[in-house]
Computed example of a mutant assay.
Amino acid sequence: MAVSAEEIDHALDLFAGLGPLTTRKMFGGLSIYCEGTIFAILMSDGRLLLKGQGAMQDRFDAMKFERWDYKRKDGSATYMPYWFLPDSAQDDADEATALAREALDHL
């Protein structure tokens, strides 16, 4: 299932405070870029994730954000460098933008 136009508009509205954003559709979802740097993914199920690298990985973990993982055929987990945006930021553009800005500072 692909993301809807409404889900895309909502994600872009949440992060509008970052400045001009670009997007690219991928695997039924959407990657979101600020000044050419990918910082977020909108999954095909409508969930938003932020990219974390360096110190931001520890910060997201300390804030108890859920990390994106998937199971391999052998049952082992593979962790991706993305964390799900918390529920509190799903409808709060100030919180979402602040988290995204902090994540971008570490990319």
Rank of each mutant, 00 (worst) to 15 (best):
F15Q: 01
D69Q: 15
Q90L: 08
G52L: 10
D74I: 05
K73G: 02
K73Q: 05
S44H: 15
W83R: 11
F27D: 07
I41A: 11
Y33I: 10
A11S: 14
Q57A: 12
L107S: 08
F65P: 13
L14P: 02
Y70Q: 04
D58Q: 12
S31R: 15
L30E: 07
I41D: 01
F15W: 07
M43G: 06
L18I: 08
Y79C: 03
M26T: 14
F60S: 10
Y70E: 05
G75R: 06
S31Y: 12
I41Y: 14
A11F: 10
L21K: 10
S88Q: 05
I32P: 10
K71D: 08
D92W: 13
T37Q: 08
D13F: 07
D69M: 12
Q57P: 05
F65W: 00
K51D: 00
D45Y: 14
I32H: 10
I38E: 05
R24L: 04
D87I: 02
A100R: 12
L104N: 14
G17L: 13
A16H: 12
L21H: 04
G19R: 07
S44Q: 03
A16C: 03
Y33T: 04
I38M: 15
R72M: 11
A2V: 08
D105M: 07
Q53N: 14
F39I: 09
A100M: 09
D105F: 02
V3P: 09
D91R: 00
Q57H: 12
I38S: 14
D45G: 11
Q57W: 15
A89H: 11
R72E: 04
G36S: 12
A62W: 01
M26W: 10
P86V: 01
G29Q: 06
G17H: 03
D92G: 01
I41P: 03
L30S: 08
Q53I: 05
S44D: 09
K64V: 04
L14E: 03
K51R: 10
Q90Y: 08
M1I: 07
R67D: 00
H10G: 14
M26R: 13
A55W: 03
M1R: 12
F39Y: 02
G75L: 07
H106V: 03
M1Q: 12
D9Q: 13
Y70C: 05
I41S: 07
G29A: 08
E35K: 06
G28K: 11
L50M: 06
K25I: 00
E102Y: 04
G17Y: 01
M63A: 01
F84H: 08
D13P: 01
G54W: 11
K51E: 09
L99E: 01
D13L: 02
A62D: 02
A40P: 12
G54S: 04
A96L: 03
G17A: 05
E35R: 09
G28N: 10
A89P: 09
G75D: 00
Q53V: 06
D91I: 01
A55S: 01
M1H: 14
A62Q: 14
G52F: 03
M43L: 07
A5C: 06
L107T: 09
A5P: 11
A89D: 00
G36Y: 15
D94P: 13
G52C: 13
A103T: 06
A40T: 07
D45S: 10
M56W: 03
T23C: 01
F39P: 12
